[in-house]
Simulated scan of single mutants.
Amino acid sequence: MKRLAYLILPLALMACGKTPEPTPLASPEPAPPAADAPTAAPAASVDASASLGAHHWQLQQATTAAGQRIDALFVREDAPITLDFSDGRLGISNTCNRMSGAYALEGAVLRVSRLAATMMACADATLMALDQEVGKRLEGNSGFVLEQGAEPTLKLTAANGDVLTFKGQATAETRFGGPGERMFLEVAAETKACSHPLIPNKQCLQVREIKYDDAGIKQDSGEWQNFYDEIEGYTHERGVRNVLRVNRYERKPVPADASSNAYVLDMVVETENMAK
């Protein structure tokens, strides 16, 4: 059985302002600035936006205005709700469906538009309800407090007084100093023994790269090969074939006894249970 994951990617519109005409030197009174002249964002907001985009934000604590823990937001203890901010868009993962919406940071207020979501049903009723629980606390205006540091903390206070605290983890782009190379890897259902100088009895993933033409048609994938590296964020399940979208980063400097490349899972595109 195959499961395909589709991500809704709304377009972000950008507005341009008009530049005001310079005031003539002979004018006795300064000319008023144009009403729609763009203004520079405060330095604090710029720094906060940069920090938001440089981290994945995992939910650590959620309490009501009365201080009670909000259990409905911790359905998946091993996979906490995670926020990602990029180019004016907020992405929410580890819910039933992946959710997204536009956001704006205005001083001490985070404004989030109506959230869109993929249309995937979840067998677990509490997980299915998680989307609504998250949406009703993040949509609209929330109080915003960002504490910078080695392990930054983001605190959001919803309109009803609920307080959500997130811990920041550096993104792969932040850790590796730039964007990675996007690629698709097909991972076979079974691993195979492979020779490794440092790991006796190592089992390697069987992987082949998938390429697509300009029309999105899959090309010949080639031969299966031993994959000696790890794919960060991916756990292989025996008997299950996957197609992964990953980002490949170049390590600089290259650690001792490590590959020059690092692979980070972006999403699982296709899954098929090969067990009979």
Rank of each mutant, 00 (worst) to 15 (best):
N242A: 05
T19N: 04
V187A: 13
R245D: 01
Q203M: 11
A35C: 07
D213C: 05
Y234T: 03
R248L: 01
T39A: 12
P152A: 11
D266F: 10
D78Q: 09
L59D: 08
Q132G: 03
S195D: 14
L127V: 15
V207W: 01
R241L: 06
S260P: 02
R137I: 13
A189H: 07
P33E: 08
E181Q: 15
D213W: 02
K202N: 11
E133D: 15
I210H: 06
L198K: 12
N97F: 15
V112K: 05
L11E: 09
G140P: 00
Q60L: 14
R251P: 02
I210T: 09
E250Y: 00
V109K: 03
N201T: 03
D87G: 05
I217R: 02
A48N: 03
A104V: 14
P30M: 04
A54C: 14
K202Y: 14
G178V: 02
A275E: 04
E139D: 05
L156Q: 03
E223N: 10
R241S: 07
S113P: 01
R175L: 15
A35E: 08
G140A: 09
K18Q: 08
R251S: 01
A129K: 08
G53K: 06
Q132W: 00
V187G: 08
T191G: 06
A129E: 13
K252Q: 01
T235S: 12
R175V: 15
E147N: 15
L185K: 05
M1C: 08
S86D: 12
E147Q: 15
V246L: 04
V254L: 02
I199F: 03
Q132K: 10
I8G: 11
D36A: 08
R182V: 14
P20D: 06
D257T: 02
M274S: 06
T191F: 06
E139H: 00
P22R: 09
G149R: 11
M14T: 09
Y103Q: 12
G149W: 07
I92E: 07
D78K: 10
Y212N: 03
G177I: 14
G91C: 03
F166A: 12
Q60C: 07
G101F: 11
D84R: 15
